[in-house]
Design a protein around this nucleic acid. Structure first.
Length: 724
DNA sequence: AAGATAGTCGTTTTT
DNA sequence: CGACTATCTT
């Protein structure tokens, strides 16, 4: 492969970034400017032209998906295996380091990763041990506090809390929580980062080893790094390694969970001779969409400054639609979706975006009614499902008996007569002896202090786990998981759930078996990975994958479908047609963000992200009246819409497609002619008068002012109205 | 130990 | 309004 291939097809700025001499570089990559492409080609360039060996490159991303994509693209560009290249998420890399250097990091070899759900349970337990009132001290708040502290790199002893009841209490819980984690060998997500940072600081020999191994570090989505991640990177780079930071300050939308946009500025100060390259040519959107995006983001202060441009078409104006209410808004979205589908777009070419998840329902219902297949992002993911978490808990116990979080989850699932009281005495025993629950359980069984029945239940549980461990010895991973599901009684337990739930749970558990089998196959096909199993086991490695990667929300759904998601999850994606719904003051920008200017700017960046997802057609829609939390809200149009110059926007006429008089189904299933002002009778609501109408055919709806019930929007096809 | 019921709360989310 | 939880009931 020759060098020209690495540079061909790149624009001047991209080429500059890719072919820069080895050194510190900041790539400010605007939306749709070919950021991933530059990263991938940069790595190829370093290997090819700077003669860096693949193992001397470390590339860090935020999501597993991004890491996977980068790996795949490097492989296809260079035609080499990326096995020796370190590409992964911050958490994944930190985890790998801790697994390798567990001893130096002060962890038990078999430590388990604690996910958000188990973390909350643990916090609750610590709360009750400290006799904190759940009312006054919500566990979620404490979890948030602990994670925020860890994200900032602070241990309890770093927090100045004197005289402040809130802080003193939080620090006390933080301490007790840490002690519980240490006792039971559990490491939460933030801890992975914090501890591997401390690993660098406390073991200069290890740090030097890695500084010798790596030559260059690349970080994607730099604007999303938090304080620990930045510190980790800074220490690792030291004075010897160079760093490519790629990011876009205008797309920083995770400030609320610790991301520090300032890290981009700090990078320029802290690292020597940073060369900055701006990628401003956009290959995604029309001139109109970019004009709107540029104008919008220009309202933010303290930007590094960037203006997107395109060599392409101006395109069509942005459509702005005002609905009466959210149903009306959804009706318009459906109508336009159908229009674009008729034009020849695929359903997957269409993205429907919203600020908060609660908004998805009305849209879903409308899509369902119109029989348009859709896919909704977000929601519960595979490894987060109850039955899967239960199964993983059994597996975790097999690997690591000290895992209290796992033990608590399954000791009585399925129920085997270990109730709340027994569990409470177990916890007390564990607390008194300063040991994990498993050990306390042994003590209780042998030395008494419990009713005979509870003792035999516990003994049976111990035997179950120990027996499982023995009988599972030497089995291939898939079979092992299968046996555990069967013998633990989980399969029967979940299968017995009524309705379709039971079957769905069984299906998911079967899916887990096949996922583990697949993982096993992959593992044994790979020399390198097999080497890593030394000192570990396929099961332990599978559990790590499950902990660090939540999996997809929907099981392989491959039907062409319209894509529904929040603005946050839309980052990094693009669609020929985009609907940005609910552009209303209070909703977007969200009312919680209105007070602090900083948060409002983040909302604006979120809007910028939304607008720049669109390639050809962008729709902004809002509802004049919206039912939220059971009451009506009358929102004004979002300020963000006003911030877009009017020349880019075309207001769509309200009451579109209304035909008056118009026809629709009547109570006998035939067609009837209706008019505004006409009196009608409804089966349940009684008599009323038609005030308003919109849509046509199956979608035709009318607003009826009922004499007794007030006014309601009804779909003619279902309402079975009788003209009077 | 399941099932019913009352009470609460209501951005955004990855790892 | 409706999803989720905690608590009470059988």
């Amino acid at each position: 492969m020759d060098v020209s291939r690495i540079l061909s097809g790149l624009n001047e700025a991209q080429r500059e970034a890719v072919a820069a001499p080895l050194g510190n570089q900041l790539v400010l990559a605007g939306a749709g400017s070919g950021k991933t492409r530059v990263l991938v080609h940069r790595i190829a360039w370093l290997i090819h032209t700077e003669q860096l060996s693949p193992q001397s490159i470390l590339a860090v991303t935020f999501t597993n998906k991004a890491a996977r994509e980068m790996r795949e693209r490097i492989e296809s560009l260079l035609g080499i295996s990326t096995r020796h290249l370190w590409v992964g998420t911050f958490h994944g890399i930190a985890h790998r380091l801790l697994r390798t250097h567990w001893h130096a990091a002060g962890l038990p070899q078999a430590f388990n990763v604690l996910d958000a759900d188990d973390q909350l349970r643990l916090v609750k337990r610590v709360h009750s041990e400290l006799n904190l009132d759940e009312e006054r001290w919500p566990a979620k708040q404490t979890r948030w506090f602990i994670n925020a502290q860890k994200d900032e790199g602070r241990r309890p002893e770093h927090i100045e809390a004197a005289g402040d009841l809130f802080l003193t209490t939080m620090v006390e819980v933080y301490r007790a929580y840490e002690a519980a984690c240490a006792r039971t060998g559990l490491v939460d997500f933030a801890e992975l980062l914090l501890r591997s940072h401390e690993l660098w600081l406390r073991h200069p020999d290890l740090l030097h080893h890695y500084q010798g191994r790596f030559r260059h570090l690349l970080v994607d989505e730099f604007q999303d790094t938090n304080a620990v991640q930045y510190a980790w990177l800074r220490v690792l780079a030291g004075e010897v390694l160079s760093v490519t930071a790629v990011g876009d300050d205008d797309q920083s939308i995770y400030g609320w969970r610790g991301a520090r946009i300032e890290n981009i500025h700090r990078y320029c100060d802290d690292f020597a001779q940073v060369q900055t390259v701006r990628l401003e040519q956009n290959y995604r959107s029309t001139g109109t969409i970019l004009g709107a995006a540029n104008a919008l983001i220009a309202r933010n202060a303290d930007r590094l400054g960037k203006e997107l441009w395109t060599a392409g078409e101006e395109g069509t104006p942005i459509s702005l639609f005002a609905g009466f209410n959210e149903q009306d808004e959804a009706g318009y979205v459906i109508e336009r979706i159908e229009h674009h589908l008729n034009q020849g777009f695929q359903r997957s070419d269409i993205g429907v975006l919203y600020r908060s998840n609660a908004q998805s329902r009305v849209l879903e219902e409308a899509l369902l009614r119109a029989a348009i297949p859709y896919r909704i992002y977000g929601g519960q993911r595979f490894y987060e499902r109850l039955e899967i978490r239960n199964a993983l808990a059994y597996l975790r116990l097999l690997v690591h008996r000290q895992d209290d979080a796992a033990l608590e989850r399954v000791i009585n699932t399925p129920s085997r007569g270990v109730g709340a009281k027994t569990l409470e005495s177990l916890r007390e025993r564990a607390r008194a002896d300063g040991v994990p629950l498993w050990d306390a359980m042994h003590t209780c069984v042998t030395s008494g202090g419990l009713p005979a029945r509870a003792r035999s239940s516990l003994a049976a549980f111990i035997e179950l786990i120990d027996d499982l461990q023995v009988s599972v010895q030497g089995l291939p991973l898939g079979t092992l998981v299968d046996v555990v599901l069967e013998r633990s009684g989980l399969l029967a337990h979940h299968g017995a759930e009524k309705g379709e739930k039971g079957q769905a749970r069984i299906d998911n558990l079967r899916e887990l078996v096949s996922a583990s089998r697949q993982f096993d196959t992959l593992l044994w096909a790979d020399e390198e990975m097999r080497a890593e199993v030394e000192g570990s086991s396929p099961l332990a490695m599978f559990l790590d994958v499950a902990a660090l990667e939540a999996g997809d929300a929907q099981a392989h759904e491959d039907e062409d479908s319209v894509q529904l998601m929040t603005l946050h999850s839309a980052k990094g994606l693009e669609f020929p047609v985009v609907f940005l719904t609910g552009v209303e003051e209070g909703l977007f920008p969200h009312k919680m963000s209105l007070e602090e200017p900083g948060r409002l700017e983040e909302e604006r960046r979120l809007c910028y992200v939304g607008v720049t997802r669109a390639m050809q057609h962008l729709y902004l829609t809002y509802a004049e009246m919206r039912r939220l939390h059971g009451s009506d809200h009358f929102h004004k149009i979002s300020r963000f819409v006003r911030e877009i110059p009017p020349e880019f926007i075309q207001e769509v006429r309200m009451n579109h497609a209304v035909e008056r008089p118009f026809t629709g189904a009547d109570s006998l299933g035939g067609d009837a002619v209706y008019q505004l002002g006409q009196r009608v009778r409804h089966g349940t609501f009684g008599e009323g008068v038609i005030l308003n109408a919109e849509g046509a055919g199956r979608q035709a709806r009318v607003e009826v002012q009922f004499d007794a019930e007030g006014s309601k929007w009804l779909v003619l096809a279902y309402a079975k109205l009788q003209p009077i």
